[in-house]
Design a protein around this nucleic acid. Structure first.
Length: 906
RNA sequence: GGGCGAAUAGCUCAGCGGUUCAGAGCGCCUGCCUUACACGCAGGAUGUCGGGGGUUCGAAUCCCUCUUCGCCCACCA
């Protein structure tokens, strides 16, 4: 589209947005740096402003969660970029170990194979090729919503340089003794066949059962234990009771016989047992439960693993149970207990059951060799950074969660039994007499100690181990690059609360450990996108919204405005996947409105346009401004202040709504209507109106640009004095100008709106045909109304379609029947409408008005009659309340007189 | 079991340093294709601000309590 082409009446973002985006990208507008003069009018680069994008999974398709998350980031980055900061929004993708491996395993499964059929190398090659095909698709999709990232710095967490960082961190932690290997109970996903961290095992409240089961005692009688997982009975190696529980005091150190198995198991005393729960006696399965594991260690119990990696019973159980799935085994065990008369009772029992965060399979606590990070030493500085304010959260209360988590932090299991990811840089020497374990920054071929052959650890690292390093690894660390020096630490991190612990907390710890500085100062946690039933949008529920559909239908600006204006700090975003039109109407409507405001203004700048150089003061000084001009300039100034403050405080919805109100309610609904006669006529006033409307509109476009980048850029470039060579993206942020504020103009214009509104109401009430003009009488005008009529008589006439406007200093006498209104300042407005007016109806209308008013007056009188109020309330409040009462009385008096004159029954 | 939010028009939400605070958008009703926009214009209706107590001259706004939703953490099997 050329600058000269006329704009179509309906905004059509198709084509326009993508063309503009390509141009921005081509011109390097999203890249920080002083080499491009466009970025830095002064020649010097601004202070950096850095946001690290939460890297989407490399296989991800854009969903509304991304749409929300990235819209917010883009608003912030664009805002700071316009404020002169050297802005870097750094994108990337995450290799997403489990998620990606699962996707490719499914593809392989379609060929009837498993990853084991392919073998490790071939499988990993397969994943790389898949990632090569589909990877980065999401980054392309992010462009469609206008994300102003620096794509040239984009990274992938498995890139060579980021892998170097991962190794450096692992080995460095290993050397510090903060990474260790050990055999512990970890969360195991029997479907993904890997260990998970505590965070990756999502607890779900489940209505389960608690089975009370009897174990015969060697000495006769029995002891009852309660369990939620009867299948683990087969791995029991003890029973535990509380040391001070009198019920079992005599049984400690005696033995029970494990039913179904016949194993002789000791009864031990341990503090971990809660005597108040169940029977007070616990079955102990050290290989299948973390608490039991600890008990087992204290009492040197055998750790009997009874399950295979995919959660079937293994050869350590009696033959009839072998090969059974854990839940089948559970049924079988219970049936046998029941048959033996050893099932005492069954209770229903709510408890938390862990589920794999990737495939939702029930987690099985499993004893295995894994790598861990010792977290306490890392958590302490991270907690301190929050406590002393180096890190702040929005909303604030999220910080409490962060602190609680940090305080109760547990060691982090980082090894995964996967093939897709950073292989653990540890080598084992199996040579007899050597047996070294070596963590190395470089690949090793032979044992440095004995020159014997080495074997690398088979496992890979948790995905989050690499993504926690992104704030510095993406900038080249451990190399001391220029980017690292310039862009670390960053400023703001924007993400969903779900990954506060997965990612945010760990970035803070890693940043402090390796860079000695927090990676960002502010963590903005936004809500979740949900449907109208408040369910989280998800692929499986089929209640998702594809942001690209929205972009196609209504444009990225509409999407962004809807999302941003609908955001309230700390709350979720509710959208209706069944009705995109309704969901995105606010954005679509506003985009179209804005488009037409622009069209109107531009079309009225035809012909000689007064040069617009300079600020308002140039025009203001001329003394040519009308009341309406002063008013809109004052409103504009107010909007600059409000929007700027709102953006600064992350109140993006307030910022968007402030500009919306200015553009739609003030500029379009009032100011444009007011100046139409001036624009169409050829008075000198037309020039001033053109200047004022152009300047205020231009300011509003800049204020709105962070939220609606495309449409604002398109319109902005067409304004006088601008050109397609420029970009609003790097235009300076509007400054506040105190001289533009004009409270008197705002008060007077409000009176004008009151007067016009009253006349319009009367017209609507009596069904005056829209094209028809009426005569109006303004009697006993209050000071504001008087000033308005003096200043904007023609405006009142045109807006209310009044042919003659008579002003009287006394009550009007009309030959004709009139419709009436009394304004807040006591002005009596009457419109002679002859037969249109039903006198009875008019009297009733005025009566209800009078009733409302007298009610308010009574309330006000009792308030002011209350000595306590007058004595205790602040003086200015009392004064204001008195003035209010006086005005209402005045209004009521005029109203009463009006009714008397109309001959209304009292 | 701990900790933390939220309950305001039909819907989604503002308003919460106390006294023009009862608002916005969407939806709804009436009338209008008024030469920027019907994705619009003008005019309307709608809420005992979750229930109950309390503090105060005055409370959606502060305190207590109850109810209902939601979130985070937690080795009661």
């Amino acid at each position: 589209m050329t600058a000269e082409a006329p704009l179509p009446p309906q905004y059509d973002p198709t084509g326009l947005e993508s063309a503009l985006y390509e141009e921005w990208e081509r011109r390097g507008i999203f890249r920080p740096g002083s080499d491009d003069p466009e970025h830095s009018p002064t020649g010097a680069p601004g202070r950096p402003y850095v946001i690290m994008m939460p890297p989407p999974n490399v296989t991800a398709q854009l969903h509304m969660g991304h749409g929300l998350n990235n819209s917010i980031q883009d608003v912030l980055v664009r805002f700071e970029r316009m404020r002169g900061r050297d802005a870097l929004w750094l994108p990337g993708t995450d290799h997403a170990g489990i998620a990606t491996q699962n996707v490719v395993e499914k593809l392989v499964a379609r060929e009837g194979k498993t990853r084991f059929d392919l073998g490790r190398d071939a499988f990993v090659r397969r994943v790389w090729s898949y990632v090569g095909e589909t990877g980065d698709a999401i980054l392309q999709q992010l462009r469609a919503i206008g994300s102003s990232c620096d794509w040239e710095r984009s990274y992938f967490t498995l890139d060579d340089d980021l892998s170097v960082a991962v190794r450096e961190v692992f080995v460095s932690l290993f050397e510090k003794g903060l990474v260790y290997r050990g055999k512990y109970i970890i969360n195991w996903c029997p479907r993904c066949l890997t260990a998970l961290s505590n965070e990756e095992a999502e607890k779900e409240e489940t209505e389960g059962k608690l089975w009370h089961l009897r174990y015969p005692l060697e000495d006769g009688g029995h002891i009852t234990v309660a369990t939620t997982r009867p299948e683990t009975i087969l791995g029991d190696t003890a029973i535990a009771v509380h040391p001070e529980d009198p019920r079992y005091a005599g049984q400690v150190r005696h033995y029970a016989v494990l039913p179904l198995v016949g194993r002789r198991i000791p009864i031990v005393a341990d503090e971990a047992v809660d005597p108040a729960f169940g029977s007070g006696a616990v079955k102990v399965t050290p290989a299948h439960d973390p608490t039991d594991f600890e008990i087992g260690r204290r009492h040197h119990l055998e750790q009997l693993d009874v399950m295979t990696p995919d959660a079937r019973m293994n050869d350590n159980v009696p033959e009839r149970f072998r090969g059974l799935d854990r839940f089948e085994a559970r049924k079988r065990v219970l049936a046998e207990f029941e048959a033996l008369g050893l099932l005492e009772k069954v209770e229903s029992h709510r408890h938390g059951v862990g589920h794999c965060y990737r495939c939702d399979t029930v987690i099985e606590p499993r004893l295995s060799d894994q790598w861990f990070v010792k977290m306490k030493p890392l958590a302490e500085p991270a907690l301190a950074a929050y406590r002393d304010g180096r890190i702040r959260f929005i909303p604030e209360h999220r910080g409490v969660e962060y602190a609680q988590w940090m305080e109760g932090i547990r060691d982090w299991c980082i090894s995964r039994q996967l093939w897709w990811g950073h292989r653990i840089p540890v080598w084992y020497c199996d040579a007899p007499g050597c047996g070294k374990t070596i963590a190395s920054r470089t690949d090793l071929a032979a044992c440095p100690a004995c020159r014997g052959p080495l074997r690398q650890d088979e496992d890979v690292l948790d995905t989050w181990f690499s993504s926690q390093l992104v704030p510095f690894s993406s900038l080249g660390w451990p190399e001391q690059t220029a980017d690292l020096a310039r862009f670390y630490p960053g400023d703001t991190l924007v993400t969903a609360p779900e990954i506060l612990f997965f990612w945010v907390a760990r970035m803070i710890m890693a940043g402090l450990e390796f860079m000695k500085q927090v990676p960002f100062a502010t963590v903005y946690l936004h809500g979740t996108v949900r449907d109208t039933q408040h369910r989280k949008m998800s692929k499986s529920l089929g209640n998702g919204i594809d942001p690209l559909d929205v972009v196609r239908l209504y444009g990225a600006d509409a999407l962004r405005y809807t999302v941003v204006s609908g955001l309230s700090v700390g709350n979720d975003l509710i959208l209706d996947p069944g009705d995109l039109e309704a969901s995105f109407a606010p954005g679509r409507n506003f985009a179209n409105k804005l488009w037409n405001v622009g069209r109107f203004i531009l079309s009225n700048l035809d012909g000689p346009v007064r040069p617009l150089a300079g600020e308002y003061k140039n025009v203001i000084r001329k003394g040519e401004l009308t009341l309406a001009d002063r008013w809109i300039i004052s409103r504009c100034e107010q909007t600059v202040r409000e929007a700027t403050a709102a953006y600064e405080r992350f109140r993006l919805n307030d910022a968007a709504l402030a500009v919306h109100r200015f553009l739609w309610s003030d500029l379009a609904d009032w100011y444009l209507e007011v100046i139409k006669p001036r624009l169409y006529g050829d008075q000198t006033g037309g020039d001033v109106a053109r200047a004022v409307v152009t300047q205020t509109f231009e300011v509003a476009l800049r204020l709105l640009h962070p939220v609606m980048p495309f449409i604002t850029e398109t319109l902005w470039r067409r304004l006088p004095g601008r050109s397609v060579e420029e970009s609003i993206s790097v235009a300076p942020w509007p400054g506040s100008d105190r001289r533009a504020g004009d409270p008197e103009a705002e008060r007077q214009f409000a009176a004008l709106q009151e007067l016009v509104g009253a006349l319009r109401s009367i017209r609507a009430e009596y069904g005056v045909r829209p094209g028809h003009t009426v005569r109006a009488t303004i009697a006993l005008p209050g000071p504001l109304t008087r000033a308005v009529i003096q200043a904007e008589r023609a405006t009142v006439r045109s807006l209310a379609k009044v042919s003659s406007l008579q002003v009287l200093d006394r009550h009007a006498d009309h030959a004709e029947t009139t419709a009436n209104a009394v304004l807040p300042d006591g002005t009596a407005v009457s419109v002679p409408l002859g037969d249109l007016v039903d006198l009875e109806k008019e009297c009733a209308r005025l009566q209800s008005e009078a009733d409302r008013l007298s009610g308010a007056i009574r309330g006000q009188e009792s308030k002011l009659g209350n000595e306590q109020f007058v004595a205790k309330a602040p003086t200015d409040v009392v004064v204001r309340e008195r003035e209010k009462l006086a005005a209402w009385r005045e209004q009521a008096g005029v109203l009463a007189e009006k009714r008397r004159r109309l001959g209304c029954a009292v």
